[in-house]
Write a protein that binds this DNA or RNA. Structure first.
Length: 352
DNA sequence: TCTGGGGTCCTAGGACCC
DNA sequence: TCTGGGGTCCTAGGACCC
């Protein structure tokens, strides 16, 4: 049985929602992300709308850099960027609405992130019919939420995913011949190939997927281990991974970057206590009542990042124990050196 | 003035058990 | 002349994704 898989990716999701909610933003460059604080803010761009992308702004970029690009644009008589803090509760509601639309058309849906979904359309039996279904989904999302999305359709999740991002925004692409489709694409479009893997492959003269296809399984295994074997398959458009309808929660964590690097212990303790309380609250809300492992992270001024974790012999259930042990782990990390601290984080795992 | 916050998965060495 | 060997858990770090 040949599968037909679709991947739906919302276009500039957070920014598009904000545009809809604030008609006065229409047609203007918008950045959802950290507060730029006149060029002194800490954090990055979460989503830039397409107008802001024309200024060279993109997600992941330091917010200070986006702010500078906006100032430059203003000095050239162009419109300044509107900076907005993200409202995840709001985006979560829209995400649920999108999911409910997709579920009207497909029984098997995977929520890959707040703005990405995989779904199975094998029952349609042909790419033609699968495409018609996706056109209807796009139309319904447009009518109900006034948002556009890009959809890729192919024989598996890998191809569907690459296809959905091939011609954003507002696209719908069917890939009938994965081999040919992949040939001239950059290795970077393969999920799991990030900056490090790209650099290693580039150094071997591998830039496009057709170059990658020339490396043997053995060579890739030597370079990347288990991931290398997966890469061998991906380069050929092969991917048998299933649609996962329910993702189980494996860990719950939070982190906070301070406005200014500090070593003021009373302040750092207070922040750690807040992390404990928030995480514990979410842990309870998710219906868990036990955890076994605590991991504390400290990022120093120079960005060096250390973690320390501790696993209890028996599962733990109370907030006081979390506070006590996270403080103990934090202290041992802080006492490793005298550097100012930029960020602290806390995560609990082995939930039950 | 660089570099968020929420996650998952993998690796590698050492401990420990049978 | 010998220092097994496989499985699993814990810990720290790193790559990657949105």
């Amino acid at each position: 049985m040949k599968r037909i898989i679709a991947h739906l990716d919302m276009d500039a999701f957070f920014a598009a929602i904000e545009e809809n909610d604030n008609p006065e933003f229409k047609g203007k460059p918008i950045v959802v992300g950290a507060d730029p604080k006149n060029g002194k803010g800490r954090g990055v761009v979460s989503t830039a709308n397409y107008k802001a992308r024309e200024y060279g702004i993109h997600s992941g970029m330091p917010i200070t850099e986006a702010w500078k690009l906006s100032e430059n644009a203003k000095s050239q008589g162009k419109e300044g960027v509107i900076f907005i803090k993200p409202n995840f509760e709001k985006y979560e509601l829209v995400s649920h609405s999108i999911l409910s639309i997709i579920k009207k058309y497909s029984q098997f849906v995977e929520v890959a992130s707040i703005d990405e979904f995989y779904f199975d359309l094998s029952f349609a039996k042909s790419y033609k019919k699968a495409k018609d279904i996706c056109l209807k989904i796009k139309k319904e999302i447009k009518e109900r939420e006034r948002l556009t999305c890009s959809i890729g359709i192919g024989p598996n999740k890998l191809i569907a995913k690459i296809a959905s991002s091939y011609k954003k925004p507002d696209s719908l692409i069917v890939i009938k011949n994965p081999q040919k489709f992949l040939e001239n694409l950059s290795i970077r479009v393969i999920p799991g190939v990030g900056p490090k893997t790209e650099e290693i492959l580039n150094s071997l003269g591998v830039f496009k997927i057709k170059d990658l296809q020339k490396l043997s399984k053995g060579e890739l295994y030597k370079l990347f281990g288990k991931f290398g074997l997966a890469l061998y398959e991906k380069a050929r458009g092969i991917d048998e991974s299933p649609i996962i309808e329910e993702h189980e929660i494996k860990s719950i964590g939070e982190q906070i970057t301070f406005e200014k690097d500090t070593r003021k212990l009373s302040y750092i303790y207070d922040e750690l206590e807040k992390l404990c309380k928030n995480i514990y609250k979410r842990f309870k809300e998710e219906g868990f009542d036990k955890f076994k492992t605590i991991t504390v992270t400290v990022r120093f001024k120079d960005f060096e990042t250390k973690t320390k974790s501790f696993t209890f012999k028996k599962p733990i259930a109370n907030l006081e124990t979390l506070k006590l042990h996270s403080l103990r782990l934090l202290m041992s990390l802080i006492n490793q050196n005298k550097k100012l601290i930029r960020m602290i984080g806390l995560r609990i795992e082995k939930l039950g």
